[in-house]
Design a protein around this nucleic acid. Sequence first.
DNA 1: ATATTTCTTTGACTTTAGTCAAAGGAAAGT
DNA 2: ACTTTCCTTTGACTAAAGTCAAAGAAATAT
Lengths: 301, 301
Amino acid sequence: MEPVSAEHVTTFRRFNRYFTRRIGVLDDHYLGQNRPLGEARLLFEIGTGASLKDLRTRLGLDAGYLSRMVRALEAQGLVRVSVHPADSRLRLAELTAAGRDELAEQHRRADGLAEGLLSGLSEEQRGRLAEAVTVAERLLRLAGITVRAVDAGSADARACLAGFAAELDERFPEGYDTADLVPPARIAVFLVAYEEERAVGCGVLCAPDADTAEIRHLWVHPEARGLGLGRRVLTELERAAVERGHRVVRLDTHEVLKEAATLYRTSGYAEIPAYDEDAHASYWFEKPLPPSPPVPPPVPR
Amino acid sequence: MEPVSAEHVTTFRRFNRYFTRRIGVLDDHYLGQNRPLGEARLLFEIGTGASLKDLRTRLGLDAGYLSRMVRALEAQGLVRVSVHPADSRLRLAELTAAGRDELAEQHRRADGLAEGLLSGLSEEQRGRLAEAVTVAERLLRLAGITVRAVDAGSADARACLAGFAAELDERFPEGYDTADLVPPARIAVFLVAYEEERAVGCGVLCAPDADTAEIRHLWVHPEARGLGLGRRVLTELERAAVERGHRVVRLDTHEVLKEAATLYRTSGYAEIPAYDEDAHASYWFEKPLPPSPPVPPPVPR
DNA sequence: ATATTTCTTTGACTTTAGTCAAAGGAAAGT
DNA sequence: ACTTTCCTTTGACTAAAGTCAAAGAAATAT
């Protein structure tokens, strides 16, 4: 959309360089006592147990290389390897007590180093640093999330709807039945947000008529909340509605979903009378859309 | 001093982990086309020219290893090596045109990646990210700076005083003569601030009498400004004064040094009448010190 | 039931990274 | 003038990291 200013690029790169030089050295994995970096990383990644396949993709390693490393850790008594119960082609790696001990020691050292570094600051400054890195992490995570239109029947789409329904079921005193989800046939656009290939949010656009679009099932995975992802998906849905030529978009929400109502109000939605008798709705909102299609974006690249 | 809260350690470590995983991969040096990381780093570090000795300490490499790598780059036509004009034991490495081209390409790629990442955010979010990383970088730099008492005649002490004098000479219309510096014999404590072994600031404590301490030549290297280092050195000087049993500390400053007066005022100093006729002073300040020695700190560790 | 795909293991490599010690030329200390 | 220290080069290594291909066992597709 907007071009990225050179100043922001410079600032960000300066930080990257400084940070990797200063802190990268104090990276957790370099603290694996006398262990080669690869093994230390592997130990860390196995954590509470993982299949070799997972480890391979997570660490981006060659299959042969990984196999040997895991066997080396096994020979050292740090890891136990078993056949995966569900699929006997897979191997499952888990830490032994000794492995957990070493990992714990690794964490203790990392804590010690971080503590040493932070001790050079006053408590107030530490607070400001903590806040700054929290903000930076949130924004970096958000920047790495992509929102894509997917088939409403795809596994990711269904997983998101299941997450959405499970959460409403918990939040509503009367529960929530997956039958109340919008039927796939009525879905015009299904957006899924991906964070590193994991589906972490969704939103559905329906088209009750040519003028009107309706947004439903806007949901963000609990682990991806607080990043501003809800707003991002909402914006993308509106963009899709504009592209499809709708002139107004409406949606409903319920008072138990406080954050939602705030999001809609601050996104230009105005409350309107009920347009249906959804049992799970207590507010109805509407927002006019700009004429479609907007000027085609200048495609910076 | 104050213990570091576990929460801050956790927050900071979480960020470290996330950042090195997400961004470390996009580290400048990994962008050295098909070049081994070591060579790419070396190319980057040579930049506008450096002695092998410098490179060795900056990169922390074995002398033999470095020598071979430089020769390899030379064989590839990226680097030119010559005898150092001032000391013929040293070798000077410089980039050739081809070397500069490759480095420029490396930078372009890094810029491109950073831009791609930032393009996932709105302009407003990018601004917030830039601000957050700027704050974080400042605080991390400050945290890495150590302030130590050194001999007033040491090279670092003299280098700082020279920097201080040169700056005043430039700022004062009438100039500043190094003869106006406090004579070494009258220096009770000389503190130097080190950032990664580089002297980046200083402060002098004199002791006109048993009750009174006087702070002079408080200075921070231009490249280390904005970190809060001036306040840090000031605090350390006051601590030294308390330890030595002084009951009050005074200092003077001049109106052309605006930042200084603000620092003193916000550090508990009150303006007092002139206690000398220093040509470079237009304000005089004083601050009472707590009784000495303060309760010995609880030494957390 | 057969072919194809997926996942892991093994063997046989290469490249990168790094260490250590000896040696020689140049500068600095005495 | 001398010894000592500093800086670089060279030889002779080792360890870590990574690649590629073949092969076998298990699951999936046809």
